[in-house]
Amino acid sequence: MIILYYRSPFLRRTLSNKKNDDGVLTHIKLSNISPDTFQIILKYIYGGFILLNEQEPSEILKVLVAADQLLLQELIDYLQTYLIENKSEWMEQYFELIHQAAFQSILY
């Protein structure tokens, strides 16, 4: 849990507010993040790396939106750079999807 606190300001704030009177953590729900996406994020949080060559660009975009929600600025910067440098053609083709994700991210 210390690693989660250190790596994500969002998780730090959320986890510290989710303790009951006994000091035991209650469950938290991240309804906007799928379990698969959260698993990728957790591997990054605990391991410090992310394998993107195996991921579809749409999955990378989902991870980017989740990283934004979790306030993982280092990962956000990395994913944005990766998409721009390696998937610019895909980004042009699916500009509307990217625009929706960006707008959705603003609402969180």
Score class of each variant (00 low, 15 high):
39 Q>E: 11
36 D>C: 05
9 P>E: 00
20 N>R: 09
42 L>G: 12
43 K>V: 09
9 P>W: 00
78 Y>R: 09
28 I>E: 14
45 I>L: 08
105 S>L: 05
64 L>I: 09
96 E>Q: 02
47 G>P: 14
37 T>Y: 06
88 S>K: 12
107 L>A: 04
69 Q>S: 03
88 S>C: 08
71 L>R: 06
79 L>R: 02
27 H>W: 09
77 D>I: 01
65 V>K: 05
86 N>V: 07
76 I>L: 02
67 A>M: 03
18 K>V: 12
55 Q>W: 00
5 Y>V: 10
98 I>E: 01
104 Q>P: 09
70 L>G: 06
62 K>Q: 13
60 I>M: 03
25 L>H: 15
103 F>H: 08
32 N>G: 14
5 Y>R: 12
53 N>Y: 01
97 L>I: 10
37 T>K: 14
59 E>P: 07
86 N>C: 02
16 S>M: 14
59 E>G: 09
23 G>M: 02
20 N>C: 08
8 S>N: 13
101 A>R: 11
11 L>H: 12
100 Q>M: 08
48 G>T: 13
9 P>V: 03
66 A>S: 08
91 M>R: 08
89 E>M: 01
76 I>T: 15
2 I>F: 05
81 T>D: 03
28 I>G: 06
33 I>L: 00
15 L>Y: 14
27 H>G: 06
63 V>P: 05
57 P>W: 00
12 R>D: 10
3 I>R: 11
94 Y>D: 03
76 I>E: 09
37 T>E: 08
84 I>M: 11
60 I>G: 02
81 T>H: 09
10 F>Y: 13
95 F>C: 04
22 D>E: 13
51 L>S: 10
53 N>H: 07
76 I>A: 00
13 R>E: 12
97 L>C: 07
1 M>G: 15
63 V>G: 03
7 R>F: 05
2 I>E: 11
14 T>C: 06
67 A>E: 02
83 L>K: 13
57 P>A: 00
41 I>R: 06
97 L>K: 06
104 Q>S: 00
26 T>M: 08
97 L>A: 04
75 L>C: 06
53 N>K: 10
22 D>H: 11
91 M>N: 07
24 V>M: 13
79 L>F: 03
53 N>G: 03
85 E>V: 09
97 L>S: 08
75 L>Q: 04
103 F>D: 05
84 I>Q: 14
50 I>K: 00
105 S>Q: 10
58 S>W: 01
7 R>P: 13
98 I>C: 11
25 L>Q: 15
41 I>W: 10
34 S>C: 09
25 L>W: 15
69 Q>T: 03
18 K>S: 14
48 G>K: 07
36 D>F: 02
33 I>S: 04
79 L>C: 02
98 I>N: 05
63 V>E: 03
92 E>I: 10
